[in-house]
């Protein structure tokens, strides 16, 4: 009797697991079915690849991208990326989409080399490739939708920190909490941050620590840094996971305002810290606009209205956007502060 009851329990458990999965699959299917149903004559399929799926930063970009796709009407938008941020998996997706003969693949490369190889191969198959958010080698793509170069970001972060610390010659120790030690984008920014720190001789960088994309670890490392370096004036949290972790550690140590935290994140995730004074400035750009512009550019490229050598792009609600060389420029980096952060909702 007992063992048969056990078997039933197990069977129920398995059925529950299968049901959950089936529901998940059904959810996944229905999400795409709608997009597939409409068959226009000149349909353009655009794939939008984020560095890591599941980050609100990219989700908000995708929202803008969907908006553009809807406006254009003849665009089928596919948004997918590795949930663990693995560049190899992302490259695998580029390979698959190229085989499916989509029209344009817009890539935000988490590793320019690994993705670059796949992008070149896809180009050889006649698929249009552009980059957005981050760039790869020039011969791997046709255009880049550029919201900010690594240099712009690095400089903006350091300048923002210097301004927040204040004074004619900002002074004090600063530290960087990065994503992982091997993160290509972050390492690029750090290089330019160090370069820019040269302009502020009294700001000294005392540590660059990894948070391994773990908010809790960013929190702990910041706690450690605050104690190990009592003269610390500023902390850069340069991944969207490290930033809130670092801010929370400063807040809980009771040193909000005395130790300033800045970094890159979507404003909604940081509003509370900006209002309580732990964070004075959040550096970013309008992510929805970035996704929107990317899809606009991709569609123009596929339909032939955008060609190499063009100097302007009609970008719908964003007006006309300038193209410098192969860089389609989104515009200014935004700095969110107490005064303006509530005006943004993304």
């Amino acid at each position: 009797m007992k063992s048969s009851a056990g078997v039933w329990c197990a069977a129920l458990g398995v059925i529950a697991a299968v049901a959950i999965t089936a529901a998940a699959v059904a959810g996944g299917v229905s999400g795409h079915e709608g997009a597939r149903a409409e068959t226009a004559a000149k349909k353009i399929t655009i794939c939008l690849l984020p560095k890591k799926k599941g980050l609100p930063y990219f989700t908000t970009c995708a929202k803008g991208a969907e908006e553009a796709a809807k406006e254009l009407g003849n665009v089928e938008l596919i948004y997918d990326g590795p949930t663990d941020g693995s560049p190899e998996k992302a490259a695998g997706m580029v390979d698959r989409w190229a085989l499916q003969k989509v029209d344009v693949i817009a890539v935000s490369p988490n590793d320019p080399e690994v993705l670059g190889q796949a992008m070149k191969k896809a180009r050889q198959k006649g698929v249009h490739i552009i980059t957005w958010d981050a760039d790869a080698a020039p011969d791997a793509r046709e255009f880049m939708v550029n919201q900010a170069t690594g240099r712009d970001i690095g400089y903006a972060l350091v300048d923002t920190m210097a301004k927040d610390i204040g004074g004619a010659e900002p002074e004090g120790e600063v530290a960087i909490i990065t994503a992982t030690l091997t993160a290509a984008n972050q390492n690029e920014w750090i290089k330019h941050m160090k370069e820019r720190l040269g302009k502020y001789p009294k700001l000294t960088l005392v540590a660059v620590k990894p948070s391994n994309e773990d908010q809790r670890l960013a929190f702990q490392v910041t706690q450690d840094l605050l104690k190990a370096h009592p003269k610390l004036k500023g902390i850069f949290g340069i991944s969207s996971v490290a930033f809130p972790g670092a801010a929370e550690a400063v807040k809980q140590s009771g040193r909000s305002g005395a130790v300033l935290v800045t970094g890159l994140a979507t404003p909604n995730d940081m509003k509370a810290y900006v209002h309580d004074g732990t964070v004075r400035s959040v550096v970013l750009w309008n992510t929805g606009d970035l996704g929107y512009l990317t899809v606009r550019a991709a569609a123009a490229l596929a339909s032939g209205t955008l060609k190499a050598g063009d100097h302007e792009l009609d970008a719908g609600r964003l007006g006309t956007k300038k193209i410098e060389g192969d860089q389609i420029l989104l515009g200014q980096i935004l700095v969110f502060t107490k005064d303006n952060i509530d005006d943004f909702d993304f």
């Binding site: 699959v25 999400g31 795409h32 599941g54 997918d80 990326g81 949930t83 997706m93 698959r96």
Partner: peptide, 8 residues
């Protein structure tokens, strides 16, 4: 990945 395009 090919058909459903959802990594998770």
């Amino acid at each position: 990945g090919w058909h459903w395009r959802r990594d998770e």
